[in-house]
Design a protein around this nucleic acid. Structure first.
Lengths: 173, 173
DNA sequence: GAGGCCATGTAATGAGTTACATGATTAT
DNA sequence: ATAATCATGTAACTCATTACATGGCCTC
């Protein structure tokens, strides 16, 4: 049920075709918050259209249809954002691995933790650069800055944790 | 496909019945990493048994069956942990909301951000206490400490981020 | 004996992935 | 012309949630 809000949010930000949306789900939002494939996106766009929450605002070559939100769609999105988060599905393979890592021998854990540290540090740096670029403009905080900045904080924390874990292990071996 | 590794991991840590596992999925691991309902757990336990990865190690009243991992099951888990994380599914409603929050008016965002700050601070405190308790023993870092400590770092970061966002907004209004 | 929890299961439905499928346009 | 990319769709399958269903044991 969250997919529809993801779509409404993306289309509210700027109109897009199913193809465009598929690309965007393969990047930012899809890599960090919610992912979807085109085979799920196209049918959902149809449903949203039927429900009057989005509409075709432009057509292009090769059967391309560009969708935008309707007033009803923006109201629906707003209501969802203001409502109680259901918390809902937690499904994070990375974290599951952390939960289970003690099933490995200490010496097997070290390279994994080092990989995590490296990856998280890299992501934090990359996102910090993105935030820099996004906020360069000036007055208004552009859509996506909040999420990107969240990523900076989150990945830094992951890197800190990995360093803690490596150190902890060193101390106890 | 991750569910089976979650089950193998939990059972490796200590034998349990389907009912026990359901409880555990409703708490720690389920609230933070991977959740599952009993209707999914019971059939998966059957499959794992048929594949020889787990086995019934004890029976109790009311048809209770306590499962434990077999050598093959532990090998399977180990292999998965050492293999490349597929990254796989990202599905995080909380983060999705952050991505879309700029669809709200600034004055509508503040209470949400304050709620996040409060919640995250509470969780960080709660988990810090849990880590304290887990590590009190001494030498060995018990299973789950890594994950719990990760939670401490992660929730602190979320609280920091929320404070940043609130401040940022105050500055720009 | 009534209510609550323990304990397991299945059926129906919904959400999501993979694979199959087609055709138009653009760049080389 | 041919390969790459744009653009959309459907079918089969798997994974996950909700709802339905049953019965045993324990406490009051």
């Amino acid at each position: 049920m969250s997919l529809r809000y993801a779509l409404l949010g993306l289309l509210r930000d700027r109109p897009a075709s199913g193809y465009d949306l598929t690309q965007r789900f393969a990047q930012g939002i899809g890599r960090h918050a919610w992912s979807a494939k085109h085979s799920q996106i196209y049918p959902e766009l149809r449903k949203l259209t039927e429900e009057g929450l989005i509409e075709v605002v432009d057509e292009g070559t090769r059967g391309k249809r560009v969708y935008g939100t309707t007033a009803a769609g923006r109201a629906e999105l707003r209501e969802w954002l203001l409502g109680e988060p259901k918390g809902g599905t937690i499904r994070n393979e990375f974290l599951l691995r952390l939960f289970l890592i003690s099933a490995l021998e200490p010496e097997e854990r070290a390279p994994i933790l080092e990989g995590v540290e490296k990856f998280a540090t890299g992501m934090a740096t990359e996102l910090a650069a993105l935030v820099e670029q996004l906020t360069a403009g000036g007055e208004e905080l552009p859509a996506g800055s909040y999420a990107a900045m969240y990523g900076v904080f989150a990945y830094r924390a992951t890197a800190d944790w990995a360093r803690w874990a490596i150190e902890e292990q060193r101390k106890r071996s």
